[in-house]
Lab assay of single mutants.
Amino acid sequence: SLEELLKLARHALRHGEEIHVLDRVITDEHEIKRLIEELERLI
């Protein structure tokens, strides 16, 4: 769900981890922040 993805993204950002989204691995902090902003808009 989007909520789950948002939780994962926030966790990854906090802990400096990578996040796997739709067969992509996002490691860049700015990309993760952008993902979080997009998800928050959708929810």
Score class of each variant (00 low, 15 high):
4 E>A: 12
28 D>P: 03
17 E>L: 15
14 R>Q: 15
34 R>W: 12
42 L>W: 08
36 I>G: 00
28 D>K: 10
27 T>M: 07
17 E>M: 14
25 V>D: 05
29 E>P: 15
14 R>H: 13
26 I>K: 01
39 L>V: 05
8 L>I: 11
30 H>D: 14
27 T>W: 07
14 R>D: 14
21 V>Y: 15
12 A>L: 02
27 T>H: 09
21 V>K: 02
1 S>N: 13
13 L>Y: 07
19 I>W: 06
6 L>P: 00
40 E>R: 06
37 E>N: 09
39 L>P: 00
10 R>Q: 15
17 E>S: 13
28 D>E: 12
29 E>C: 07
30 H>I: 12
40 E>Q: 08
38 E>D: 10
37 E>T: 10
20 H>R: 15
37 E>L: 12
26 I>M: 07
13 L>A: 04
33 K>M: 14
39 L>T: 02
1 S>M: 13
37 E>W: 12
9 A>C: 02
35 L>R: 02
15 H>R: 07
6 L>C: 03
20 H>C: 10
17 E>F: 13
7 K>N: 11
23 D>H: 05
28 D>F: 07
22 L>T: 07
41 R>A: 10
19 I>C: 03
3 E>D: 08
6 L>I: 06
11 H>I: 06
16 G>P: 03
30 H>E: 14
25 V>A: 05
20 H>K: 14
13 L>W: 05
16 G>A: 06
21 V>T: 07
37 E>Q: 12
29 E>Q: 14
27 T>L: 06
24 R>D: 05
21 V>D: 03
10 R>V: 14
13 L>E: 03
18 E>Q: 13
36 I>P: 00
31 E>W: 05
16 G>N: 09
25 V>Q: 05
14 R>N: 12
33 K>Y: 09
22 L>G: 15
30 H>N: 14
39 L>I: 10
22 L>D: 13
2 L>E: 03
30 H>C: 06
35 L>Y: 10
15 H>A: 09
10 R>G: 05
14 R>F: 13
1 S>R: 13
33 K>R: 15
42 L>I: 10
15 H>T: 13
15 H>S: 10
29 E>V: 14
34 R>C: 06
28 D>A: 11
38 E>V: 13
7 K>T: 10
33 K>H: 08
5 L>G: 00
25 V>L: 09
38 E>A: 12
28 D>V: 06
24 R>S: 07
28 D>M: 09
39 L>F: 04
25 V>M: 04
2 L>R: 04
42 L>P: 00
12 A>R: 01
41 R>M: 09
36 I>M: 03
13 L>T: 01
41 R>C: 04
21 V>R: 02
9 A>D: 00
13 L>V: 04
9 A>Y: 13
36 I>N: 00
11 H>E: 11
9 A>P: 00
36 I>L: 03
6 L>K: 01
34 R>H: 10
18 E>N: 11
38 E>G: 06
6 L>A: 02
8 L>K: 13
5 L>I: 08
22 L>M: 13
27 T>D: 07
5 L>S: 02
1 S>K: 12
6 L>H: 02
33 K>I: 14
19 I>T: 02
22 L>C: 05
7 K>P: 00
32 I>H: 01
21 V>P: 01
21 V>S: 04
36 I>V: 07
36 I>Q: 00
20 H>I: 14
8 L>C: 05
21 V>G: 04
31 E>V: 08
31 E>F: 05
24 R>I: 09
27 T>C: 04
39 L>R: 00
36 I>T: 01
1 S>T: 12
14 R>A: 15
37 E>K: 12
28 D>C: 04
24 R>Y: 09
10 R>A: 07
34 R>L: 13
26 I>L: 12
16 G>I: 03
34 R>E: 12
40 E>I: 12
33 K>S: 09
7 K>L: 12
25 V>E: 05
39 L>K: 00
4 E>I: 09
18 E>R: 08
25 V>H: 08
5 L>D: 01
10 R>M: 14
10 R>L: 15
1 S>H: 14
31 E>C: 05
26 I>W: 14
18 E>I: 11
12 A>T: 02
40 E>K: 07
22 L>F: 15
36 I>Y: 01
24 R>K: 12
10 R>C: 05
10 R>T: 10
42 L>N: 04
38 E>S: 10
28 D>Q: 10
26 I>D: 01
35 L>Q: 01
34 R>Y: 08
4 E>K: 10
41 R>E: 06
11 H>V: 05
17 E>I: 14
35 L>H: 03
34 R>V: 10
